[in-house]
């Protein structure tokens, strides 16, 4: 029988490096020394587990989860859905997916956001859910607006939803951002362009999914997430060093 072994090493040529000068904030927040590469121990191959007691079914419906009774968030109604998979293309069931985003006008409900677009009284901007047994998840929300940010004088973030995913091991932990197909701001964004590999950027762009829509009601975008995969141990291998 194949036993699950270590996780595949993270492909650092596809992931953004720490220092990316065009995203200015990274300059003083990037370690200068190399990361110390660590082979997996029990500390890395384990990670927190979550259950349905931790969350509420309404948490995944951002149109209603902060709305007053009888009201709903303003904006283009979307379903964001997809699967959480590992690098072996196996679904990751029961894993926590958390999202946060600006409202349809590009304004965050956060005391530090001072952009002049108004707060939507019926929109909080966060949601969370657990993947089902097939690794599938979905959220209902509004499409976030683009907004300006201080980097160069005239930078605009493409519409995006922040996503946080756990997997089964702490070494799979990932936070990323989901963009939307066809947005002309994507290739101009210094945060997007921290990623050196064009295919890795494409993988962050949710695809319009007309088959996933609810006709006359809500449009859909599909966004699959891939977390690190594990090798199976075919042979007991002698572990070198530590």
């Amino acid at each position: 029988m194949l036993k699950p072994g270590e996780f595949y090493q993270r492909d650092r040529e596809r992931q953004p490096p720490a220092l990316t000068r065009d995203y200015k904030t990274s300059v003083s927040r990037s370690p200068q020394y190399s990361l110390i590469s660590l082979q997996n121990s029990v500390s890395e191959i384990t990670g927190p587990t979550f259950g349905h007691n931790d969350i509420d079914p309404l948490d995944k419906d951002l149109i209603y989860n902060y709305a007053k009774p009888g009201e709903s968030a303003i904006g283009e109604r979307i379903i964001l859905h997809g699967r959480v998979l590992d690098e072996n293309a196996r679904p990751i069931p029961n894993t926590l997916v958390e999202i946060w985003q600006a409202n349809a006008g590009g304004r965050y409900r956060h005391k530090k956001d001072t952009y002049l677009a108004p707060i939507d009284p019926n929109f909080g901007g966060c949601g969370r859910t657990l993947t089902d047994e097939n690794g599938y998840y979905y959220f209902r929300t509004v499409k976030p607006g683009a907004y300006p940010w201080r980097n160069w004088v005239n930078n605009w973030r493409p519409a995006h939803i922040h996503m946080s995913i756990f997997g089964t091991a702490f070494c799979q932990r990932l936070i990323t951002q989901c963009y939307f197909e066809g947005d002309p701001l994507i290739p101009k964004c210094p945060i997007v362009n921290t990623i050196p590999d064009p295919e890795a950027i494409e993988q962050l762009v949710a695809k319009l999914d007309l088959n996933g829509t609810i006709p006359l009601d809500t449009i859909a975008y599909k966004f699959d997430i891939v977390l690190r995969g594990r090798r199976s141990t075919l042979f007991e291998n002698r572990l070198e060093g530590n």
């Binding site: 992931q15 998979l85 990323t176 997007v192």
Partner: peptide, 26 residues
């Protein structure tokens, strides 16, 4: 036929909205 790991992006300044909304102010 491996799938490549999804690339990371910064959590940004408003990480609290999603992961600690009380601190964001709601």
């Amino acid at each position: 036929d491996y799938l490549p790991e999804t690339a990371s992006q910064t959590a940004g300044p408003y990480v609290h909205i999603g992961l600690a909304p009380g601190a964001a102010g709601f």
